[in-house]
Design a binder for these strands. Sequence first.
DNA 1: AGCGCTTCATGAAACGTTACATCACTGTGA
DNA 2: TCACAGTGATGTAACGTTTCATGAAGCGCT
Lengths: 347, 347
Amino acid sequence: MNRNLQPTMKDVAREAGVALGTVSRVFNGYPVGEEYRERVEAAAEKLNYRINNYARGLKTNKTFCIGLLMPSLRHPFFAALIDELTAALMHRGYLTNVMITNFDPGAELKCFNLIEQNKVDGIIALTYRPDLVVESAVPVVTIDRQFHPAIPCVSSDNFRGGQMAAEKLLELGCRKLLFLRIGPEIQSEADRRGPGFEDVCRRTGTAYDSLLVNDEETEAPVYQFLSRHLQDGHLDFDGIFCNTDGLARRVMEFLERNGVRVPDEVQIIGYDGIIDFATGCYVCSTIVQPLRQMAEAAVNLLLSSETPAGEAVLRLPVTYVPGGTTRDGPAAVGDSGVYNPFHTEFR
Amino acid sequence: MNRNLQPTMKDVAREAGVALGTVSRVFNGYPVGEEYRERVEAAAEKLNYRINNYARGLKTNKTFCIGLLMPSLRHPFFAALIDELTAALMHRGYLTNVMITNFDPGAELKCFNLIEQNKVDGIIALTYRPDLVVESAVPVVTIDRQFHPAIPCVSSDNFRGGQMAAEKLLELGCRKLLFLRIGPEIQSEADRRGPGFEDVCRRTGTAYDSLLVNDEETEAPVYQFLSRHLQDGHLDFDGIFCNTDGLARRVMEFLERNGVRVPDEVQIIGYDGIIDFATGCYVCSTIVQPLRQMAEAAVNLLLSSETPAGEAVLRLPVTYVPGGTTRDGPAAVGDSGVYNPFHTEFR
DNA sequence: AGCGCTTCATGAAACGTTACATCACTGTGA
DNA sequence: TCACAGTGATGTAACGTTTCATGAAGCGCT
């Protein structure tokens, strides 16, 4: 029959002199007589047989493939998250269909369509389209956005992260705090960073202000705001919490350019835990998200498909790490602060 | 029959009152009478029918899925490459199975096995295992490594890149050049950067030196070498070409820490074209690889599966971009040098 | 020896498609 | 009027698995 193509189970069965079903059972770990098992394994080895996942998937409706919907790969936070997710999935024998949407709702629709007809066993999505998630034919776990009580969501403990940032700044001697937030206007778990921060300020009676910019296009309002509070090299705040490491870093550079020393005069804490590829150091003092645990949790929730009890959002504990924009000094990753991209311990 | 499950072609056929084959032809773009086509489309719409790629794949041996084997996602160069590749594949209607090996040969084997039994239509690989590539049952296109004359390889024009670096440094007034190379000892297209650089030095009679460190673990030899050529704040070279942006950046910081001003006293050029996520600027003056073109080419080669004429390696043109470590000034990406991660133009 | 039990190999019937050989129907030309 | 293309719908046989009903073989017991 199909010479010159890949061998099939039928070929293995003929070679081993057993029935088709027996070969199947060997490959699925069902009990098979020792002698038969050996004959089958020898034949499979000899023919270099590979099981055909498409035939199997057709029959069983399980594909061992998960769709991953992410907004970007250029941003180190998303890249690291995808890295952890693919690793966790691979570890359980799942393949990952990665789809990058570039924050484009149209692209998200296209991805969902492709994913559905490709019959993945589930989807892990960091998406901006509640409608698609809710209507999905396959199970979904979302990251950072809770769309529906029955759809599990994994995120870091953003509220606690905000609290930690405030507590840390106070502990380091700050007296007048500022919260800066920038990003697209979509309801997400990340919105709890500000409230956490303000909670501590209020409870400790600390003076604070905040600026929320719901804009995806420009950070200009932030710099205008800071300029207004700048007077001959002195800023009106001595501790700043930014909702993102990127913003923290840029605010730091803005202040330094305007003669405000960081961390001497103003201390800054960001959020995410992003590491600079060249130095291997955190780009700023930061609340780091437990990426690996989040990935593990997302995969577990998706594959066990038991709806978690109560509210369907899992908030994993964050940690604070000094990174040079606070007075508690930098914390280098790796030996000498020199990052080697081929340095696997780094993962 | 299978109520409560996804509708099948049979269901659509019954609903539309046509034969199974007719439905199939509609979905595959074969000529079908207008009236029939409409009935089928209406029925499919009504039942919310999705074609089952696993059944189709079983029958046709085409899966519209490509395996992507990459060493890392934490390094911005790989992340950007994967981004371009998934985009190019998606654009052609292909899904991408991303697998990260973390430079681990054992993991590479595991990935190849998984990929083969999952019946992808082809593989794009940046791998360290010639054996697996050569023996692969499905077509492979490699990035940066030519393993076999019949297996296409895509890379940037590394030799020309090396030449450009040297030419640029000379043009900017350098007189004593240095080439620094670090990385694992594997034969790859990147090895041509040094020879290109040296080619220009030799032809112009320029004084130059080079240091090649075949080590994946540490860059210490580089800093020892530089220390030996440092004397009270003066370095023995005034132009350095590093085989990597990361190295270039770290060398810059090392020199600055030792009182050597960059780019005033020493100018540095790196290779890759990596952009800092926080600032949106190149991390150093650099030879940038045409990632998008490389991705397009890889996908084209893989999907057209015509073996290219002659030598099977495609070397795409690089460009030089000033990035602050040379005297021709920085070139910011985007308007104000401020990078917004939600800024799609950035792609 | 014969009975019931367990264990385990067998063969065939799906799974949801595509592709191919039929066949019904229309229209044309002699 | 009839044969003959040509068009296009139909039904069926694969594709490579899993699963299930069947039945054979072995074993312990009466």
